[in-house]
Design a protein around this nucleic acid. Structure first.
Lengths: 242, 242
DNA sequence: CAGGATTTGTGCGTATGTATA
DNA sequence: ATATACATACGCACAAATCCT
């Protein structure tokens, strides 16, 4: 069974039902599907992606698979060793900490840009995404919660007006997402909902400096979860600093 | 004449002379060559890259060309319109300003990380790259000056210890490089050498806060050059493949 | 607004290069 | 050291979409 929708079905009176929103190329469809598999954890870190197998699974040619794979490689979700194979990236503790640290710098920059531009539109959309996140924590799977969390935080980058920053974030966010999946930071966080609420409230407040501090604090919680996860083989006798 | 080196020459007693350091794939070789063409300005913004023509020019198959092209697309140097073609990206003034602004945020972050880690190794390599830049301004072409400038500034990202930041910088630096090529910021800058000297001295000094300000100042000069260029020159017409 | 030219997108067979068990 | 599995690369053919006259 083909996962990817075909375009040029030649059967007489073929139902156009499947042709909705098919402007994208097959490469993009395969890449999206693969990305979902990786980000949902169904393709564990370290797994090798064999082109021929994927090609027959998806029902597309190896060329399309190769191009989609390279798209994910350039996004940092897969790594390639020439002539050896392509594998799902496995983030170690140090890298995940670096991801969160860098994200802090970008998010502080984004909020500095958007702070004087906040208006009704911003408050409305920001609130909507926060509500969606809160709902997800109550009714959805962990994967959906992570997606909602990513979507909530992405809005700062979308709204700040720097499109280059948005592009960079869309790259980095893949690794942030993967870090959440690997470290299960969101589930293990002690008071995830309360923390998000505090972040949300401060973001709509009056004090930019306070928000910049809040961003750091918020991300340090993620880093703490990463460290706890990385050391959970041997329970830490003493907690890490802070 | 083929620009790309072939591996499996079957001619009897073919000289193994050309086999040195050939571990990279053809895809990577083509991508590097294309990137140099774009970043050196030999492929003007807006130029369409026709796969078949490139394939015969380079002496490689269309598949390899396609993969190399997509590598540059994911790096942000080319854009693709499905079924229409692939073109060298043309950065407008707003985008170039955004590039410099974001670079400021990243570079301040990098220096904050590396500041307490500066040692003899750092000073030595940093000085070497600065000297190379100074030399380039006196003896080399403009393209070489830009390369030296990029290499000089890249060291902060290499040394700061955050590998994820380095990856992000390697993406963004492509657009920084292209902005220099398009806006000719370096040549038009009033006192480029003096500015670099000041940046260099402050980076080796004692005051981090002063350095963060210096970074902003340094990049604002680039933005000023971009603005001057955008308002002086009329937008160039797009060409087709030569 | 045809319709043909151009170019990209896709598929497949095959040969070779490379890593690894 | 050999075998094997796989990635890499090539060439061709055709489909599909865009562009242009």
């Amino acid at each position: 069974m083909s996962v990817i929708q075909k375009k040029g079905v030649k059967t007489a009176h073929a139902l156009p039902k499947f042709d909705v929103a098919l402007s994208r190329t097959r490469r993009a469809q395969v890449a999206d599907t693969l990305r979902n598999f990786v980000l949902s954890g169904q393709l564990a870190p370290g797994t090798q992606l064999v082109e021929a197998k994927l090609a027959s699974r998806f029902g597309v040619s190896r060329g399309s698979i190769r191009e989609a794979i390279w798209e994910l490689i350039d996004q940092g979700l897969l790594i390639n060793r020439p002539y050896a194979g392509t594998f799902v990236i496995s983030l170690d503790e140090k890298t995940m900490i670096e991801v969160f640290s860098l994200r802090g710098a970008l998010e502080r920059y984004a909020f500095t840009l958007l702070w004087p531009k906040r208006d009704g539109v911003f408050r409305e959309e920001f609130t909507a995404r926060h509500k969606a996140l809160v709902n997800a924590t109550r009714t959805q799977t962990r994967f959906d919660v992570i997606k909602a969390e990513m979507r909530f935080h992405s809005y700062s980058y979308e709204f700040c007006g720097n499109r280059v920053l948005l592009e960079v974030w869309e790259q980095l966010s893949q690794k942030v997402h993967l870090s959440f999946v690997i470290s299960q930071a969101i589930v293990r966080g002690t008071d995830f909902l309360g923390e998000s609420e505090r972040y949300y409230t401060t973001a709509l407040g009056d004090d930019l400096a306070e928000m910049l501090v809040e961003i750091d604090r918020h991300l340090e919680l993620g880093m703490l979860a990463v460290r706890r996860f990385a050391h959970n083989a041997s329970p830490p006798a003493s907690k890490t600093t802070e």
